[in-house]
Structure formats: structure tokens, C-alpha cells
Write a protein that binds this DNA or RNA. Structure first.
Length: 401
DNA sequence: TCTGGGGTCCTAGGACCC
DNA sequence: TCTGGGGTCCTAGGACCC
């Protein structure tokens, strides 16, 4: 007698914005967007308020989206702002046209990470099998948790929701379903601060009517191609023969799509994973030319290498594939990478190899973005750590574990 | 009027090896 | 005159996600 799998997907409501509202409760109920960063909204806000409790800053002193100039995008919008059509990943300038009166605040990564750790720790105390899906999302395996099956998981979901609110003052939405795929969709059913319970038998009535794009894994490209084939809802996909989907989308993607449309997904909740790569990238305030802006570009390039080396060292990793990424003014992306003999986390080594990569790519056109990446990571052991400092490994073997 | 930064995974060709 | 087949690694690009 094995228990039926019950998997929860938990999504913090407007996470970045909600974190700011804890600090500035006077902004509750107002359209607020978090993002940008290219313009120092922070400093604007601080003018004349440096020694004032954040909660006492008058609403009229907060910077408005209409005054924002720069290349940033929206990270999160509060629900009042969403009513104007403003949403995540939207360019700030476009958002400013839709809702100029919205208040704009920069992302406070420290604070967001602090609350991220807090809410995840709260969950883990109640249900230990938690899979990290970024700062504001997790999957939770309810199956073996005592009481995890009651009311299809609603009782446990409610308990977690309350615990998170008590500990952080933040709300979340939870979907509980037989698998991750359906749970992810279910968590969107009753936002914010909602709980949705979905069973396998509900797929036809609750999943099939949804747009294909709601499936986690169907993005803008696949959606457009589906539309060209006159498939719009998940039910439309489910109605197709598997072979037909394979013919149109390839063996792997077609097979997966068919399974997904039928609500089938046996991926486990993965509680631990190792990073594959670490990177740093930056979009310039204005497009740069490799020749004309050589010095500026070189300084930024070195900075990126230093940052990524710092990330590796701080987290205790070394890597052996070093690469660069460019974005040209027309948004086309070029990448180059090179795998070296020995693992490293050394900024100078990374800079040297990345510099070689840079020579292999077209540099005539104006650049919008530059990035540096280190992949093929391994944990920095004793020898690897020495290597990371710039010393050659004794005999090419590293104590990686 | 555009479109950040940090990731993962997949594909596909060529090198190289057995 | 005909030239296997599998496996792994490297590299570049692209889709997708948060």
C-alpha cells in the first residue's frame, strides 16, 4: 500500500515587491514596481531621508516610474500595478507608459535572499523534502509527510502558508497535485494567498482548457509554432497523436509534450543539486564599441572576471571551461568558450582565457552586453583551492571531493 | 518604446578513441 | 573501392525558466 504522490508547488506572491512593502508599509495598495537598477533609484529615495525610519518617508517622496530613464526591466509588480498591464520582464520604459504613476524601487538582493532563506527554512521544518526553484519558488513533496494526504494536501498547505506568514509577514500561493507539472499550474489558480488542490482526474476539466503556454516548458517559440498548427489549449495538444507531435516537434520534445498535455510527469522532487556553471554579465548604459570604448570595455571585462572568480571562491567551486558572451546592438548573441587543463577559480586565469575567447568573436559591431562564464564546475578541495590561488597542481590530479 | 541577470538543458557537428 | 558503430568530449547556439 503506497501512498499516492502529492506534490506541492509554492510560489511567493509578488515576492520582491512584497519584501519592499514590509519595509515601506505606507506603499500598501499602491502600484509599485521593482526593477531597473541602471538608474540609482535608491539614491533618489535617500535624498533627505538618510536618518529617517523607512516607514516614515512620505509616499510623495518616492520616485515614480514616469521619471525613470534607462534600460532596466521590471522584476516584480504589485497587484495594483498589474491592473495596468505592467508585469515581470517588461521593459521599464514600456511600463512607464502603461503606469507612469507607479512607484519604482530597486531590487534589494540581500533582503530578498534573507527572506528567501527564511521562508524555505520554515517550509523545511514542516515538510523536509523541498526542491529549490529560484528565490521565490519551491516544490515540496507532501507524500510522506504525516497529514500530507489530508484533503488532498490542503491541510498541510494551509499549515505551511500560515507558518510562512507568521515568520515573514509574506503570503504565498500553493498548488497541490499528483506531480510537479500539475502542481506548478495549480499554484497559479488562486493567486494571491491561495491554495488549489488538483487530482489526476481533474486534468480534463481544469488543465485542458488552459493555454498551451501554461505548461512549464512551453515558451514563446513553441507556443507560436503550436498556434501555426492551430493548437492553442493544452487540450488541443492532448487531442493529437503522439506520432504527429513527434513529427512536428522532434522525438524528445514531441514525446514530452504529449505526456505533459495528459498531465503525466514522474520527475522526483530533487532536494540537492550541484551548480553547473557560474556567470556574471552586464548590459552597458549605452552600446560600446570594441575599439572606440576599448578602455571602458576592458575595465568592465576585468571586473566581471573578478566577480565570477569571487563567486566561485566564496561558494567553494572551481571550473575548467571559461567562456564569454556578447550581445550585439541587434540583440544577437555570440558565445565562445575554452576548456583548460586544470580547474581554477583564479581571476587572472579566467581573465586570460576569457580574453582569448574574446579574440575569436566579431567585435566590429556595437556591443550591448558582455558576460563571463565558468562551467564544468567541481567542488574546490584542498588541492583545487591551492590551484584556485594561482598555483599549479602538483601532478594534475585534484582532490575534488 | 523595446527587451536584466542568473541559470539549466538540449541539439548538433566534429574530433578522437576503441 | 569502400569505408562499422558506438561513446565521450568540446564547442556554439538556442529554448526556456525564475
Amino acid at each position: 500500500m503506497t501512498a499516492e504522490r502529492r506534490i506541492a508547488h509554492l510560489d511567493m506572491d509578488a515576492f520582491f515587491a512584497s519584501v519592499e512593502l514590509l519595509r515601506y508599509p505606507q506603499l500598501k495598495g499602491l502600484p509599485v514596481v521593482i526593477g531597473g537598477g541602471r538608474r540609482k533609484v535608491d539614491e533618489l529615495l535617500r535624498e533627505g531621508h538618510a536618518d529617517r525610519p523607512p516607514g516614515d518617508i512620505p509616499v510623495s517622496d518616492f520616485p515614480l516610474l514616469r521619471d525613470y530613464v534607462g534600460r532596466g526591466v521590471i522584476t516584480t509588480a504589485t497587484y495594483p500595478a498589474r491592473q495596468f498591464g505592467v508585469g515581470s520582464a517588461m521593459g521599464m520604459m514600456k511600463a512607464a507608459r502603461l503606469c507612469p504613476q507607479a512607484i519604482v524601487l530597486p531590487v534589494d538582493f540581500e533582503e530578498v535572499r534573507r527572506f528567501s532563506r527564511l521562508f524555505k527554512a520554515t517550509i523545511a521544518e514542516i515538510a523536509p523534502r523541498v526542491e529549490d526553484r529560484g528565490v521565490d519558488e519551491v516544490y515540496i513533496d507532501f507524500t510522506e509527510v504525516p497529514g500530507g494526504q489530508r484533503e488532498g494536501g490542503r491541510v498541510l498547505a494551509r499549515l505551511i502558508q500560515r507558518a510562512i506568514f507568521e515568520r515573514t509577514g509574506l503570503t504565498c500561493s500553493i498548488g497541490v497535485a499528483p506531480n510537479k507539472l500539475i502542481a506548478k499550474m495549480a499554484s497559479e489558480f488562486s493567486k494571491p494567498n491561495g491554495i488549489s488542490i488538483v487530482y489526476q482526474g481533474d486534468v480534463q476539466t481544469r488543465i485542458w482548457p488552459l493555454p498551451a503556454r501554461k505548461i512549464n516548458g512551453i515558451g514563446p517559440k513553441a507556443e507560436a509554432k503550436l498556434a501555426r498548427l492551430h493548437l492553442h489549449t493544452i487540450g488541443d495538444i492532448a487531442a493529437q497523436q503522439r506520432e504527429w507531435l513527434i513529427d512536428n516537434f522532434g522525438k524528445s520534445y514531441g514525446t514530452w509534450m504529449h505526456e505533459a498535455a495528459w498531465g503525466r510527469d514522474d520527475r522526483p522532487v530533487v532536494t540537492e543539486s550541484e551548480p553547473v556553471s557560474m556567470s556574471r554579465e552586464t548590459t552597458f548604459d549605452r552600446d560600446l564599441h570594441a575599439v572606440r570604448d576599448r578602455a571602458e570595455l576592458a575595465a568592465i571585462f576585468t571586473q566581471l572576471c573578478v566577480k565570477v572568480a569571487g563567486d566561485l571562491q566564496r561558494k567553494g567551486y572551481v571550473g575548467k571551461t571559461i567562456g564569454i558572451k556578447l550581445r550585439y546592438e541587434d540583440f544577437r548573441i555570440a558565445t565562445r568558450d575554452h576548456t583548460i587543463e586544470h580547474f581554477t577559480a583564479d581571476a587572472k586565469t579566467i581573465r586570460r582565457i576569457a580574453g582569448q575567447c574574446l579574440k575569436r568573436v566579431e567585435l566590429q559591431r556595437p556591443l550591448r552586453l558582455l558576460g563571463v562564464r565558468v562551467g564544468k564546475l567541481a567542488r574546490a578541495g584542498a588541492d583545487a583551492a591551492a590551484d584556485a590561488g594561482g598555483a599549479a597542481p602538483r601532478d594534475g590530479t585534484l582532490d575534488l571531493f
